[in-house]
Design a protein around this nucleic acid. Structure first.
Lengths: 206, 206
DNA sequence: TTTGATTTCAGACCGAGTCTAGTTATTGTG
DNA sequence: CACAATAACTAGACTCGGTCTGAAATCAAA
């Protein structure tokens, strides 16, 4: 059923991503031109843009695909949205570093965080998530509260990612970074659940 | 002291902003070209970009100039950061609509929210604020908590602005919108202080 | 008025992204 | 197998945001 045509398309797609990824990690997002990518991948620029809507999307393949709203909507009965999200990201934090190639991951994140343009694009992706999450929360909490909650949750998760990257990009060992991430994840959800009031007193360092 | 030269520069600057603002509100940010703006303002494109670093900056003049970090750093002794911010935005919500021209304000916000590119740029401005705020909170709460708090606060404020705009852009009367904004501001800070836990139960509508 | 510094300018240039019109595959059908 | 119909690809021109260059205009100080 999967005709030759579709296989070729998939090949081309993969080739473009591979070439782009290599160039981005070698020289950084901003220093690479889509003309270069197209040339190196042996396609016309127009073809490249037929596969990917923008240069950013080339570097953000597979980013922002968490389904926050889905996690909330599919949670076990009796579980609060925050509990469900906490469990989800707890599992993710545990699993993440175990399965994934550390160097590849840190290279990917470095490409993103090193380019303001890319960080912005990643942020825009998160924005989508946020809206969907707000909608998922609306039934239970009403619109204004749901919107605020969703915003706080999304911002929190982005911050966790950033912190994780900074540890990983520093000289922290992968296990160390994973440990810190796990700790900060709990901290973050505690903060969301209990509010800032609980943190009134000096807690310098961590 | 203020030589002719500097007066001319200021005139030119104002002329460019005026022209750009008019065109943006007439036709929307994306449908206006910097060449058009330059032509209408009777300057060369290069001159325009000597005054303003980007097309976005033309539409975002005076946006994102709140100084969240400053509010926190200059708060009265004994006051928590959140208390200080709450007081600040409470005052702002009260004063805002009283002083400012409603139509002008809503036009401005419409220009921004109607263009994804512009919303993104505004978001990037908020990002700066967020980092400064995180730094201001670090002394008291330690780095990871401060970063999380700052992220939640910034996201919250953005959400308030969005909600305010949506009410204003709808057919809500200015006073009505101001009233809602005031209410949501309190709600937002309650949420930040007490956490989501407090909102477990059905609160449909508002 | 001459000199030196600023400002402005037109226009070339770059990179991202779109569009067009024509070419080359791959496909389903007789 | 031949033959449309269709899908994918291509080169190149084009638009728009933004930078750069080198020259011309303007202003300040002497």
């Amino acid at each position: 059923m999967t005709g030759l045509r579709e296989r070729r398309k998939e090949q081309t797609r993969q080739r473009i991503i591979a070439v782009a990824t290599r160039l981005f990690t070698e020289r950084g997002f901003d220093a690479v031109t889509v003309n270069e990518i197209a040339e190196a991948a042996e396609v016309a620029k127009a073809t490249l843009f037929a596969y990917f809507p923008s240069k950013e999307s080339l570097a953000l393949q597979g980013v922002g695909e968490d389904d926050l709203a889905g996690v909330v909507l599919r949670r076990a009965p009796g579980q609060s949205p925050l509990q469900a999200l906490r469990a989800h990201f707890r599992a993710l934090a545990d699993g993440q570093l175990a399965t994934l190639d550390r160097d590849e991951l840190v290279a990917r994140m470095r490409v993103i965080f090193d380019s303001p343009a890319l960080s912005g694009a990643a942020n825009a992706l998160l924005y989508q998530q946020r809206r969907a999450l707000a909608e998922a929360l609306t039934e239970e909490y009403g619109e204004p509260v749901a919107a605020l909650m969703a915003a706080q949750i999304a911002a929190t998760l982005l911050t966790l990612q950033e912190s994780f990257f900074h540890h990983l990009a520093g000289d922290a060992a992968p296990e160390e970074a994973a440990r810190v991430l796990a700790g900060e994840t709990e901290l973050a959800f505690d903060l969301l659940e209990n509010g800032h009031q609980h943190r009134l007193h000096h807690r310098k360092g961590q």
